[in-house]
Design a protein around this nucleic acid. Sequence first.
DNA 1: TAGCTTGGTCAACGTGGTTGACCAAACCGT
DNA 2: ACGGTTTGGTCAACCACGTTGACCAAGCTA
Lengths: 173, 173
Amino acid sequence: MATPDPGASDPQTPDPQTPDPQRPGFLLPLLLLAGFRTLIDDLHAELARQGHAELRPLHGFVLQAVGAEGTTASELGHRLGVSKQAAGKTVDRLVALGYLERVDDPHDARRKLVRLTPHGLDGLHRSAVIFDELRQRWVAILGAERVAALEDDLRTVTPANWFRLDVPGWFAG
Amino acid sequence: MATPDPGASDPQTPDPQTPDPQRPGFLLPLLLLAGFRTLIDDLHAELARQGHAELRPLHGFVLQAVGAEGTTASELGHRLGVSKQAAGKTVDRLVALGYLERVDDPHDARRKLVRLTPHGLDGLHRSAVIFDELRQRWVAILGAERVAALEDDLRTVTPANWFRLDVPGWFAG
DNA sequence: TAGCTTGGTCAACGTGGTTGACCAAACCGT
DNA sequence: ACGGTTTGGTCAACCACGTTGACCAAGCTA
């Protein structure tokens, strides 16, 4: 690593030229990511202001996936599209933060129910409210039709199974 | 293709079927993320088909950020919005994969230029082509005006500095 | 009862990020 | 010319989030 590498001559290009034409395809994913991250960043800035500074970007979706009724780690992994081990580790972290709790299932000694604590329920409700406010901010800027069209268009070009809408608990509370 | 989902995206239509009030704000970030990930997944499926199975989702943007002229790890971190250490580790991985190379800067013994190898250039060009094709696929589904409107709207609601358009090398080929 | 399936956990590892510390080279003001 | 500051790169430790594979206890079923 410390050995200098000879042979590199004339890497200097004082004239920054753009040889290729514009690639519009590169912008689309960036804009989608920017829109997503803008919402997420604003959400967590506001959540931190409201006493939930510990919540990481992913956690809100996990709380949403757990839902008011609770689930198991395996089912949670299925809902989130990750392995049960990954879901279990995420649950561990949220338990340590006080957002989730594990309780034994009296009907099945293998299962351990994952439930929202009051703190977790509070965070989930606040997330929903803040997301609604952020969407309203977009509506105020773009107009309701444009935002609705944006959502409709994205729903159209997105595989239907992306959201696992078949799984109960999503987007219902 | 577009499955009409009554009440899911229209806050003006009351849907007595759902117990809780609709939280439209939750859908917006998910749809944006779904659109982004759909593009990225399709890109990498196609890249793998074209001999770039090793490229991970992030790497295309890194290659784009490096650009044809090359940069340093610090500058790369600035462009990507991460620390110079993180950028350095990402460069390490891409060097190991044969997409980037490090050469000493003869004008400044501290700097180590990061440049695309021919393999990296090939991957970058293929990414650009595939992204363009994916955007064309969206245009075929939604129409050119809707896709353009979607991009315009996202640009409007996104902080201007998100893309670091001031930094040379971005989106210029 | 025997055997398969399911839910949870542990271990090892990979990727992508962070801070803090440190060093050498470059820059700059006296 | 010297000495202090800035800059570029690296190392180390750590964290979040994901993967496979192995394993075990409990439940289900032929």
